[in-house]
Design a protein around this nucleic acid. Structure first.
Lengths: 223, 223, 223, 223
DNA sequence: AATGAATGAGGCTTCATTCAT
DNA sequence: AATGAATGAAGCCTCATTCAT
């Protein structure tokens, strides 16, 4: 097993407040994340997790009542971070600054999401795989996505629409468009073509440009 | 079990050329697709599939050597259609027509992909779920995606770049951008918010507009 | 394993009407009865049963969904016989005969119950052990006991009370008394002191006498 | 957990002489009795007992080497009381009194056993359940039953046979008869139909009457 | 081709018991 | 004395797969 990974710290941050995690518990979580993300939840066996963690199989069940409990304890806390208050503080500040452009806003989101995804890749893979099958996760996800993410971004979009920076089409369509592009960007960089050598910053700027101005050549664009 | 679904016909088209499918075989495939897409491949049991199909447990293994064989027989043929020569014939024609705009091209792709996805939703769900875990699928997917899709679209993009319609940035970035938006659009319509009442055509036009011109208000746009 | 036992035939009689039992299924039942009655249901393991029956453990679960199912399939059908229509036909005849004495009635019951218990000893042991813990059994038992046994005996008792043969105290108390004595008699013979050499017929007659006239010496009995 | 029950005091009486019981030990015993009697020994888990007692899992094993040890420590001491010297002292006195009738003797026994059973119901349930499966218990039980109970009652019976009060049949048969009736009486009152509203004293007198004179109507009784 | 009983490996989970603290 | 984390054997059950019919 590799040395403690970044997402382990993330999980610890979330849990430490409530209870201390023992060393073994940490190793269980770490192994579970690796194996779940590699083979999928249903195809992973608790015995394999125990073995990789170097604990007895029974030990897993002392800490997590069921295998599904183990899954949720990994995936549920990450969800709030994934979706939740992404740098809301900096975020709001940025928006309030009078000279902040919409491009800056996009740049901040993309950077933030990219860094976050990079640090939590295995857990995010698990989450994406399991959301369709775990009713609890699906529900939680939808709620967070609606109440936390969309509702907040809507305000930003509307703000810039009022400022005259953004076209006045339904904000939801704009958000769908933005999220698609950003999600596709992150996926491509980290999962689909991770081995390709991207000039990350350049791609970010290009992406921002395409979100803002599309791919039509200005000269040919009478609109 | 519902009456024969659309994707069954699709599968039949692909297989009929090689062998005739018996009635039972068809029922097996149909049940398998439904169950796999509902619970995921690993969490589905062959006995449940047999039961739903109304055949004996052993019958499945007379037609498909293993459970994985059954999966591949469902998912592999669809891949060529999914990714492959999407109406390339009509496609090329369209492009060649001198008055065809890039917007028309986008419109054709979006419509085609949306219709295709709608008709094959369960199988596509399975495919998306299993690609990360089945090495064969992943490889096949990457190859098809590169050789069939990207390489063809690149030509179109380059063509329009030469025409001066599309900005001259790396075509791959443009394609990533386009695919992200289209994929996000289809997913939203069919999976994420299927119950929402979309004005489909309007959303398509809006999407095309955003791909072409972005979301920046023209007035505010000095570039 | 011993050759097919009597209670196996009993079980078969009850089940054959519905479905044929395979050879393996019979061996499973036989082993289960032996092991359950020897160590108790909760302390018996399905693997031990499978081993004794000479089948794979999985085979048990092809025929009985759960371990408890196996228990019930053994114990539930016996209950109707145990409690149910004990030779009701002969029974009613006997009673109707004008010259039948109450002693004859007792003699018939005792003989019948003793023979029945002797033939089904292991299953009856299991039943007695599990009734307190299996809610379904307890309920079924109470219902059968009340509706089938008590209600029928009550009629007989009342008949003989009218005839002036039996004292006119609450029939329920008489029945409790009779059942206690008979149950205690059977238990002693078959379970508590099976190795003692009883002169069975003599003990039966003695028991009938005590039920009818008690243990007080007539001479000393002014009542 | 309810306040200390009667049978706890009983157990304490028996153990105090040897060692002092700590508070935790008492709570362990109390919980064990409740759980054993509710689900049966084999189906009860030490961890549940620990939890109900409010002690750590390990604590049980500090006081009782094994789970079976715990069972025996509950059930073995009760056995001497159950079976043993049931108020033998008063008992002998009673008998010796010249005017004591056999009915008084029966009345004393029934009352005593009923009260005793009522006070120790849970432990007695455990005992009855486990005697068939625990060889040590079975042996101890048989020995006590023979040496303490039967041998003593035999003397009483023989005494009254000499007095001419009791019929001269084998004392063992009389004892079996008596014990059956008394046991059945207590079981019915406390376990089989506890919710029925019995007039206890009346039932006792009726039971004594039936033991002494049976259920035959005197008039019809030429013997 | 089809069946479905049979298999046995492996899955998740429970449990009595131990031991370092 | 007490704790409770840890163990690993064992328990019940599921499942993909085989094979005689």
């Amino acid at each position: 097993m590799q040395p403690t990974e970044h997402w382990v710290e993330e999980l610890l941050k979330l849990n430490d407040q409530e209870e201390k995690m023992t060393d073994k518990q940490m190793r269980i979580i770490q192994s579970a994340v690796e194996i779940f993300s590699e083979k999928g939840y249903a195809a992973s066996s608790t015995s394999e997790i125990a073995q990789k963690a170097g604990v007895a199989e029974g030990t897993i069940f002392r800490h997590y009542k069921t295998k599904k409990d183990l899954l949720l304890s990994i995936v549920a806390p990450i969800m709030s971070k994934l979706i939740g208050p992404f740098i809301i503080r900096d975020f709001t500040k940025v928006i309030d600054a009078p000279y902040t452009t919409y491009e800056d806003f996009l740049r901040a989101i993309i950077r933030n999401r990219l860094d976050y995804a990079r640090s939590n890749l295995p857990v995010l893979k698990i989450l994406m795989q399991e959301i369709p099958f775990q009713e609890d996760l699906k529900k939680q996800f939808k709620e967070l996505a609606t109440k936390q993410v969309v509702s907040r971004i809507i305000k930003v979009v509307e703000l810039y629409q009022q400022k005259g920076t953004v076209i006045t089409v339904p904000p939801l369509s704009i958000i769908r468009f933005m999220i698609s592009v950003i999600f596709g960007f992150v996926m491509t960089l980290l999962i689909i073509l991770p081995e390709a050598e991207w000039d990350e910053n350049e791609e970010i700027e290009l992406t921002i440009q395409m979100i803002m101005h599309g791919i039509a050549h200005p000269a040919s664009d009478p609109a």
